[in-house]
Design a binder for these strands. Structure first.
Length: 256
DNA sequence: ATGGCTTATTGTATAAGA
């Protein structure tokens, strides 16, 4: 089983990249973030022609999450139960016996912003929700754009980023609380190259200079941990014309 | 040198991303 996550920064713009990528990689599950379109504009037909079913929770201009799979998706839910949130940031479905949760965690803008408080509250609600989900679905994967670089090795210049949004201690603590639920950062289950990142700023020739952050993650529950075979960041879509600023993270598992 | 780019919007500048 191959799972992937990709913040596409507008599916309207990036649909050709997504279609090419699924044709090449044939993932069993692809979670998308920042589709930035209403459900009525979502390209269900083009994906169906490519052999993929899709579920989407979107809105105009901002946010929007989707799960693509050639397999049957059951028990679809959107949003975090009990969290009053206008923003379309979470969608979940069961594929086989695996619960797939696709999340676009808020960016937070800056640590002195109201959006930062919203981010921390959202992460708290996410943890509470996942604690319940894990009790119901032992095999669970949380894929998405976390907007958190968990450790200094996930940051190109830790000194320059120290204390800033995406790396601040309360955000990293929220990430550790997710880990404490028994959700493992699958990328770190394996040996990886130094300076492995999933996002690079559009400015400053950041991709060419590898000035990036690792903020897109695939966390897996205890019951899936031993099934993990390989996890990697696929930088190839970041090299295309008009790329997303994020690139896919991919996890291969033994389970069907 | 605190910007640089990209996206969407009833836009010709602004907001947001990270």
């Amino acid at each position: 089983m191959k799972l992937a996550t990709w913040n596409v920064n507008s599916l309207n713009v990036r649909l050709p990249h997504v279609l090419d990528w699924i044709a090449l990689e044939k993932p069993d599950v692809l979670c998308l973030q920042e589709t930035k379109q209403e459900d009525s504009k979502f390209p269900y037909d083009a994906l169906k022609e490519a052999g993929y079913n899709a579920i989407h929770s979107g809105q105009k201009t901002y946010n929007g999450v989707a799960i693509l799979s050639p397999h049957l998706m059951e028990d679809v839910s959107t949003g975090i139960p009990g969290l009053n949130d206008e923003q379309k940031r979470l969608i979940a479905a069961t594929i086989g016996d695996v619960r797939i949760v696709c999340a676009y965690i808020p960016n937070g803008q800056s640590v002195d912003s109201d959006k930062y408080q919203y981010k921390l509250g959202w992460l708290e609600a996410l943890s509470a929700y996942l604690k319940d989900e894990l009790a119901r679905y032992p095999k669970l994967a949380l894929l998405g754009d976390y907007n958190i670089a968990p450790e200094d090795r996930d940051v190109h210049d830790p000194a320059a980023w120290a204390g800033q949004v995406l790396v601040s201690e309360p955000e990293r603590e929220a990430f550790r609380i997710l880990s404490a639920l028994g959700l493992h950062d699958s990328f770190r289950l394996f040996e990886q190259e130094d300076s492995s990142f999933s996002w690079w700023d559009y400015r400053m020739a950041a991709f060419r200079r590898n000035l990036g952050l690792r903020i897109d993650h695939i966390l897996v529950s205890d019951a899936l941990k031993n099934d993990c075979l390989r996890c990697w960041i696929d930088k190839s879509p970041r090299k295309l014309e008009r790329p997303s600023d994020h690139t896919p993270v991919v996890l291969e598992l033994t389970c069907a």
